[in-house]
Nucleic acid binder design. Structure first.
Lengths: 247, 247
DNA sequence: ACCTGAACACCGTTCAAGT
DNA sequence: ACCTGAACACCGTTCAAGT
């Protein structure tokens, strides 16, 4: 998963700089792609103007010619990832719900390749142009499906980032706790007495899962559960609106 | 909203240090409350070991006696806020749904006083003890209401941080865009052609709202809409489970 | 006119030196 | 044995000095 082109080096390790004028020129896209590669490999925390400069074999200050500042860099990373999300397949079963579902599931796959995206998006105040276009597509799917503008509006709020493929979880309820040893650790620390309901739940989960796969929750299942819960609820509201205006 | 006790100073401005042994002793709670006060007033970014030391009129290094490191400090801030959320009133109408709803709405009020909480929570890998206790209470309410353990589990994933009062929005769809001037700005920059559905939606919102209040969306309404959508859907699943096992 | 890199004003944390 | 503060290894960004 090497998204960026590494700077060319001589076999002896010396870096081409002033010598080689054919060396790939810097551009905003090349800078942003290098940052994405850095984040994919080492996390968003590793994305540093200085380190990015190293990665591109360039003076850190040179980056400021292609990027206003670090905020602008992160904006660029988010925008590029969202811009490159696959378009929803032309023919999908299940009406507007099915189309929206397919869109969210496709986005989710991309987000798993870029695990830093939720944190990056969360840290932005404003939506990037690509995010706006994405949400316009979502609105289009719903309006085409017969949702009122008012319902579309509420839905965008209700779905939030879920439609972009985020799990949006407070903490990894299962990953952090459902692993067998962790449950035991909980009990060992006497927390099980304090958390009877969670303990019972986690115990049952790890018991059920143990017979099938490893342990912990299936993120895909949970994502689909929440998504369908919301989409089903929204379709019910759409039908109710329909009856109210047509009946 | 002054949560912390400021260090006492002489009227001439000189700081009591070694002189005054009765000067309030540092403690983990005092450190954490000071950090919360700092975040409430100036945002999470202003919470710095150095600045916190200044605030408490203490060497920054002295903080490390009460707090393992900065991560531990933020953990402490999150834990204290969650621990002090009001308990759900004993008698609330509407069964488990009503009780859970009341809990989320009460939490939401607290979160609005501590606007840095979503960011702080998002940056944590693990839940704090108070968060675990909170989620145990949520699980208890649902189990008492007749939800199967399996449904409780899915619900915790689906509700995510919403039950803690977070809006969990990707970006402030409305705040950033629905304000009248912004819509015009959008059109001026030719984005309206690219975003026909969003533009139409935002135009209608600002038109509708203009006659009632200012502009933008009502966050409380949107929070309640999404919460009820989820709670209604979960109650439907509970009933379906009921029929499946009893019928 | 352009580019570069030294320097500034921060940060969390270590660790040695002083009591 | 304890505490303190100098120092380290970073950070984003400014700005002046050099070409």
């Amino acid at each position: 998963m090497e998204l960026m082109a590494r700077p060319k080096r001589h076999e002896d390790g010396a870096v081409d700089r002033a010598d080689d004028p054919s060396r790939e020129r810097l551009s905003r896209e090349r800078v942003v792609r290098a940052a994405i590669g850095l984040a994919d490999e080492h996390g968003l925390g590793a994305v540093t103007m200085r380190r990015l400069g190293d990665e591109l074999a360039v003076d850190p200050m040179a980056l400021y010619k292609h990027v206003r500042n670090k905020d602008d860099l992160v904006d660029g990373m988010v925008d590029l990832v969202v811009a490159e999300l696959p378009p929803v397949p032309a023919r999908v079963r299940g009406g507007w719900r099915g189309r929206l579902r397919a869109k969210a599931v496709a986005a989710r796959e991309a987000m798993q390749r870029h695990a830093w995206m939720p944190e990056a998006v969360e840290s932005r105040a404003d939506a990037t142009p690509a995010m706006l276009r994405y949400y316009d597509e979502v609105a289009a799917i719903m309006q085409d499906g017969g949702c009122s503008i008012d319902l579309v509006h509420h839905s965008l709020h209700a779905l939030g980032s879920r439609v972009l493929g985020f799990t949006q979880e407070l903490f990894d309820v299962a990953g952090a706790l459902a692993a067998g040893p962790q449950v035991l650790a909980l009990q060992a620390h006497g927390m099980a007495d304090e958390l009877p309901h969670l303990s019972e739940m986690l115990l049952q989960i790890s018991h059920d899962e143990a017979t099938i796969v490893g342990s912990g929750c299936d993120d895909d299942v949970e994502f689909a559960f929440a998504l369908d819960l919301l989409l089903d609820g929204l379709e019910r509201r759409r039908k109710a609106d329909d009856r109210a205006s047509n009946g």
